[in-house]
Design a protein around this nucleic acid. Structure first.
Lengths: 127, 127
DNA sequence: CGGTATCCGATAGGATACTG
DNA sequence: CAGTATCCTATCGGATACCG
């Protein structure tokens, strides 16, 4: 138990780099929720608004642009009248499935944990 | 293919709620990296600084407090001289392993994808 | 070593109004 | 319907200095 620290550090770095790569692309409150919404198939602007509760037009617009630039979302304009715009996932963003599942499962676990702590009156008041 | 939309919407919501629960706790640039650092065992303030490249004392201090309040990190003060403070994960935060693994794998995939696109000269300039 | 205090700029994100 | 424009606040996050 001497030189583990150095080895550990480089091991840690090798995990941290890709994790931070992911976080850079997925950061913020809305990107993953938007992607979740689109996992159910291509949708129109307003439909996403309805799924992702609380998002404003402004944020949705901005986040969709971000996601499109990063190759995670495709914007398609149907040249009908009136014009119809749809958004959908790319093959690449579909690989986010495991991330979403992991977050979902942990979210459920976390909420269960909170309820438990509540029963045990061990809640630490937030702020 | 008529009423799927309503059903889809409630299905979507049932995924979105726990995902957003997770994101609320894990948001920001630093929390998951800090947790990754601590997966290698309890560490001191400065050691975390070294693992999580680029973080400032101020942010680390703040984020550790946040994580402690949410029951994801434990702060332990050894009453030696000089005083030694260590941080470690809780059983609960250890369940984040799957989330971290998923993000790590996706990060690797994403970088591979970027390199591919680069070769194909399909890069979309950022900004 | 393990932080806190202060200051500051940048970005996230909300509210509201408006447009083709 | 599918957004943009404008304005605003809050938080993020960096720099620097300082403290027991």
């Amino acid at each position: 138990m001497k030189k583990t620290t150095e080895e550990e550090h480089s091991q840690c770095t090798s995990i941290l780099r890709p994790v931070r790569d992911s976080l850079d692309v997925l950061n913020g409150k809305w990107k993953l929720p938007i992607i979740v919404s689109l996992t159910f198939g291509e949708k129109r602007f307003t439909d996403i608004t309805k799924d992702v509760h609380g998002i404003t037009d402004r944020m949705l617009s901005k986040e969709l642009r971000d996601l499109e630039m990063n190759g995670l979302v495709v914007r398609k304009i149907q040249d009908t009248y009136p014009v119809k715009v749809t958004y959908s996932l790319t093959p690449h963003s579909k690989t986010l499935r495991t991330v979403i599942d992991a977050l979902r499962n942990w979210g459920l676990l976390h909420r269960k944990k909170l309820n438990q702590d509540c029963k045990e009156r061990k809640v630490v008041s937030k702020k």
